[in-house]
């Protein structure tokens, strides 16, 4: 169901019609799906990533640690703050339009 919605979304975009903004549930779902997909890709490449990035280092910390422990969570966290504020704004807008 989620993927059919996702495909529908993409096909709407490619067909040149004006794209309707997805609702908050779909946005949350897409974000989760994106994160899960990223984990699957990351996991599939894990043997190579761990082999390569454990030798290279930044601040003497192996890159594998640097990426997974600090960089990825920091990026996700920054996006989450943006995502939460955007969702809040869209929900407020929806409430206002309902009131009108």
């Amino acid at each position: 169901m989620l993927f059919s919605r996702l495909l529908n979304l993409i096909s709407t975009q490619f067909s040149g019609q004006k794209l309707k903004r997805p609702g908050p549930e779909l946005q949350s779902g897409l974000l989760c799906a994106g994160l899960i997909l990223a984990v699957l890709v990351f996991g599939a490449l894990w043997p190579y990533i761990s082999a390569v990035f454990s030798h290279a280092s930044l601040f003497d910390i192996p890159l594998a640690y640097f990426i997974v422990v600090l960089l990825l969570p920091a990026v996700i966290l920054a996006y989450l703050f943006y995502f939460a504020s955007r969702q809040e704004a869209s929900e407020l807008k929806a409430e206002e339009s309902c009131d009108e």
């Binding site: 280092s57 930044l58 601040f59 003497d60 910390i61 192996p62 422990v69 600090l70």
Partner: peptide
């Protein structure tokens, strides 16, 4: 979080 490489590893 940033120093354990140089300090310990």
């Amino acid at each position: 979080q940033f120093s354990f490489g140089a300090a310990a590893l």
